[in-house]
Amino acid sequence: MRRVLFPALLLVLAACASDPADPATEADTDSTAAAVAAPDVEVDVQPAADTERIVTLGGPVTETVYALGMGDRVVGADQSSLFPADVMEKPRLNYFRQTSAEGVLSLEPTLVLASDGAGPPGVLDQIRAAGVEVRTTPEVESVSAAEVRVRMIAAVIGRDVQADSVLAAMQASLAEADAAKPETSPRALFVYARGAGTVMVAGTGTSAEAVLKLAGAENAVSEFEDFQPLTAEALITAAPDVIVIPERGLESLGGVDGLLLQPGVAETPAGQNRRVVAVDDALLLGFGPRLGEGVRALAEGLNG
């Protein structure tokens, strides 16, 4: 049943290698190809010995376990796990990069499913040393790698069949997103904000850029990589037709009016036409099972 398909592993490796051009090109050319290929994605992962009590560290990991119908096995999750609402009722552990070994162990898990970024260093080993199985999954930034991750988690918790429907649903909404794409690609600027002092924009090679391309937009920024602080001049140079911003970020700035008060924003085409699309960043940037929904919402927002 569990065939080893090297392409799948290569995709994981490619996602880990963080070549700036990679996720973007993959995301924008492969969305339909991946949709066809996905059911064949198989990963070489052994199932966990005991999935009775699961602790999840990392939002997308938690979402995936819930999407695979194993939410009732989750006995605790980290601070970045905000969805579904049910997980908020479970014991809350530290943010996954600052995990406390004893805190995790106090929940008596039989399996700890962690995102690769979980830390600090040594903590996962401490948990293993206490006799608890720990599995890590890569942090992904492309559709194909996201699909591989769903397969990996499903294989660990023994839900291969459910993974088929999760992936099918994801592809269906990605296909809908593809249909809802604007006819001509608008130049979109992805703004990440946590209050007026901390406004960053997404450069090339970011997961935000990959998402913009999936939703049929072009990143207005091509001069720099990663997230960079927003400057008025850079903003005017980028001249975005539309600004895409996480909902919570928009709230922290005081809504669209607050965003327009940021230096330079009002002078851009997006600012003049008040074209701002608020998105749920938990839906998009983690590349979790709800990625398709998020992309569809963004594509509709870009079109509307």
């Binding site: 943010y95 990069r97 600052q98 995990t99 406390s100 070994a101 970024g117 830390g119 600090p120 260093p121 040594g122 903590v123 990663d226 997230f227 960079q228 602080p229």
Partner: peptide, 21 residues
């Protein structure tokens, strides 16, 4: 300025101190 999100978080937590490690 050059740090990505994960590195930034790690650095912030380091400056808050912890005996957790």
């Amino acid at each position: 300025l050059f740090a990505d999100d994960g590195q930034l978080r790690n650095l912030t937590f380091w400056t808050l101190g912890s005996l957790g490690g």
